[in-house]
Amino acid sequence: MLEIKHLKTLEALSREGNLVKAAESLNMTQSALSHQIKLLETQLETELFKRKTHPLQFTPAGQLILESSRNILPQMQQLERQLVALQQGEIGRLWIGIDCHTCFEWLLPLLRPYQTQWPSVDLDIVPSFHEPPLQKLPAQKLDFVVTSDPEPLKGVDYTALFSYELVAVLPLDHSLLAKPFLTPKDFSNLTLITYPVPEEKLDVFKQFLHPAKIRPEAISFSELTIMMLQRVEAGRGICVLPKWLVKKQTDFQHLPTRSLSESGLWSKLYAATPKALTKQAYMQDMINLIAERMEL
């Protein structure tokens, strides 16, 4: 029954003080505005204002609608602005999931400059303890996933972010330092210190050791990169980490590294995004920011 145009009409009547000026402000003829008001009064079965009064006087029903219009119209205007901004890619939601154990190391420092540039984007990192983050994209539980394992999912795009080399970090006096690079066979007598994630999620296994059907003599786990490096320093094994990550660990830069195979073991990270959002400006800026800052 009541429509936005009716709220605008009463607001214009209150602002302008008479029917003629109210019609002009609404880009309507006086007769069209009079007809609209009369039709609404018929539907409501009550008068909205007293005719031939100066200044214009609203009835209790008219005053009730007028007071509501003063609350509702600003909210509608704000909503319209937000919808336009959303269509133009100025606002949105960017809930990020991470399918890569070391990604926190480089992603977190990028969030502050991104949020400064996009203050209207609802930005967050969403933990994915029990459900693979990629599976949350189609369900709209996430909007952006960093992964090294793209898998075909309906309605999901994958954009390459950057490539990086994985290197072995060894104790200072390790015998393998005599070699220019390591082979899978070198791991058969080693303790490999790694993150507590499934082997199929770790490139050192799925791209390097598993194809050669080699397993380390022992495997130990650590949640924290710094603890892995401390254990390497103490001679309790070796670890395999992204080269960029090793360079950032200033307290352990004295530890030597070796490539895995002559050509090195390389991995690539991707941004997984819903197809409907991939081209949004705020989404593209996050992709570009990662690619530019992490270009190796």
Rank of each mutant, 00 (worst) to 15 (best):
L166H: 12
K247I: 00
A272Q: 00
P150G: 12
Y114F: 13
I65F: 09
F187W: 12
K243H: 13
E90N: 15
L79M: 14
I125A: 10
L83V: 11
P74E: 12
Q135T: 14
V204A: 01
K38Q: 11
E295N: 15
F49C: 02
L7I: 04
F162V: 01
L265S: 00
A168E: 00
P171Y: 05
L83F: 08
L296K: 11
W244R: 07
V246N: 02
M28V: 02
H35C: 07
D143W: 00
K8A: 11
D186A: 07
N18V: 09
H6S: 08
S128A: 14
L48Q: 03
T53R: 08
E217T: 10
E90Q: 15
L166E: 15
R258H: 07
Y158I: 01
N189E: 14
L123S: 05
L142F: 03
L7P: 05
S69T: 10
N18Q: 13
A85E: 15
F208W: 02
L176R: 08
P133M: 00
L190Y: 07
F144I: 02
V145R: 02
E262W: 01
R15E: 15
F181E: 04
Q63D: 13
L48D: 01
L66Y: 06
P242D: 10
N71F: 14
S148Q: 12
L73M: 08
P109C: 06
L142P: 07
T278M: 07
L166Q: 11
N27I: 01
Q280M: 13
L182A: 10
E3N: 12
E223Y: 09
